[in-house]
Design a protein around this nucleic acid. Structure first.
Lengths: 336, 336
DNA sequence: CTGTTAGCGCATTCAC
DNA sequence: GTGAATGCGCTAACAG
């Protein structure tokens, strides 16, 4: 099977010859049909069929200086939070004739820098980051080269280029405020160790005004780690009244661990997640969470990149799509 | 910000001039350093630093006929089952200097064919499919062009090129056999409408030898659809004893719905999922499931593609990685 | 509306 | 060990 007579790819040249026109006419008939006489166009289209021609976009890109590809850099592809963003990003880009190249940084700065270089050497037309770009040589180079960059799922006043997201610090303080408004003072945190989760924690603590029982687990978080985390928080304060988790997956683990330990949610323990995962609404008790519109982030990111690629000016370089605390059963009790 | 003086990319030419060597020497110093005198090499490396040169892999690829990219086609990127596969695939490929381009078929044959053409026009060096390739012109073309293709997460005796996966029919019959061995005859199905879920259903029914209460939901499945599905199955048979679900997400929904309705699992209703999701082990009751090693599929797929790209013969064109029924609390009762 | 010319940036092939 | 020529497949820019 390894010695198949690998059929050579047809080139535009073959098409042109088969259609009896020049190379350039064939090229135009395909990419700018309106500039070509109807009859000629049909001849070329027929030749394309006959020869089984598949254009080589790499070659075209060499000349036109655009690869029609966009890089997406995520910590790990399987982080559920980013999935809706990547999904819509892929869809919108594809409709515009762009494809996505994915890279995984593995929460590692060195790899992020290396990956950025790889992507540059592939001449991607734009870069979408999950999170903020690490400052450094790579970031500078991007600005110098004028490559569109969209940072997402976070917020900053000075993006490398553009940013679509929200403030994690504000999320943390909003949740703390929410807990306090419920009269819950014995609160705890079950949180991942990644940068954004840390920001939420800081926002939370700044409103609380003191340290609170905290379990920090290694990102990416999971249901299992959520269960362990509740154990840790309870060790630090057996009478903790409410826990803020850094993901809905962890929160699910906390719910399960509470159930196993016979702790009633929300009567004895309130639980709040983060991310607005599909399943959170359908757990029992249903899970309160901080809802973020990941799909909207993807759409905005795609539009920013596309606008930049077409040389259009961008109205808003900083898009704050905000967030929303969705109150469900896991935190729903009358104030006491 | 849209009128930044877009710095032109440096080319190998610039590097060569800066180093005072010829273009070709610069090229070699970078890609085949051992063929160049140490002194020359260092001059070139310095010049690379000074100029801030980033190689253009598209240009190199034009000549060498390899893009060092691989296409991955999935129905939707957010289908949890494929995530471990995509993740390891990306990792292994990246280590070998290859990047992944993702495409979403949206469970749509026409889009799959169109996407394949798009990927061909990008001259990807290989294609990894989630599931089997639809027979058709596109598939034929792939064979003609001798492009490595790995079909995954399914099994066939006649792959387009290679296949890494397992038989969904066998999964279905194994689960049916398992249920029967437990003495459960009033069984039901809660299943998605995608092709692979349908195969599992067929395998299941072929062993049962008759139709059973079935809820079919639109893919991609979800926790919510799982809850609805149990409702539907119960409507068809209020005394159903065991349900086989087409994903762990759906199974989780079934568990929750059972809990809400006061149906005890596993005493009154046994539940079995599919996919071996991380969370399944940590639910309460823990979820029995059909475990599949998605990461192993990714590793195998990457190795097959890489071997083919390097012209090495492939030992096994058909790799069956099998599956395993993992018995947990949701089906664990003494035989009756 | 169509054809000609001249590269895009690099790597293969051959000389030296 | 190094360099010059040539072309990968296509398109921008100009002539006709």
């Amino acid at each position: 099977m390894s010695s198949v007579p690998r059929l050579k790819n047809k080139t535009l040249h073959d098409v042109a010859r088969s259609a009896g026109v020049s190379l350039m006419t064939a090229s135009r008939a395909i990419s700018q049909p309106e500039l070509v006489a109807k009859e000629t166009r049909e001849k070329v289209m027929l030749a394309v069929q006959v020869t089984g021609y598949i254009p080589n976009r790499l070659a075209g890109g060499l000349k036109s200086q655009r690869s029609h590809t966009v890089a997406a850099l995520v910590p790990v592809i399987s982080v559920p939070q980013f999935l809706p963003t990547i999904q819509t990003l892929t869809e919108v880009l594809e409709q515009a004739g762009y494809q996505l190249i994915v890279g995984q940084t593995g929460y590692d700065r060195a790899r992020e820098a290396a990956l950025l270089n790889t992507m540059l050497s592939r001449r991607v037309d734009g870069i979408v980051m999950a999170g903020l770009l690490q400052p450094g040589d790579a970031a500078q180079k991007l600005t110098q080269l004028g490559i569109p960059v969209v940072e997402t799922w976070d917020m900053t006043e000075r993006p490398v280029d553009t940013v679509v997201g929200f403030s994690h610090v504000k999320v943390g303080s909003a949740v703390a405020g929410y807990f306090l408004s419920k009269g819950w003072h014995r609160v705890g945190l079950a949180t991942g160790d990644d940068q954004r989760a840390t920001l939420r924690r800081e926002g939370f603590l700044s409103v609380m005004g003191r340290e609170v029982p905290t379990a920090i687990v290694k990102a990416p978080a999971s249901v299992q780690l959520g269960r362990q985390a509740l154990g840790e928080v309870l060790r630090q304060d057996p009478l903790v009244r409410a826990v803020f988790c850094s993901s809905d997956g962890m929160a699910q683990g906390v719910l399960i661990e509470a159930q196993v330990r016979g702790i009633r949610v929300p009567e004895e323990l309130a639980v709040l997640g983060f991310g607005g995962a599909e399943f959170s609404a359908h757990l029992s008790p249903s899970l309160s969470t901080v809802q973020v519109d990941g799909a909207a982030i993807g759409v905005h990111a795609a539009e920013l990149i596309l606008a930049r690629c077409q040389g259009k000016p961008v109205a808003q370089r900083i898009v704050d799509i905000g967030f929303q605390i969705v109150e469900r059963e896991s935190t729903m009790v009358s104030n006491s």
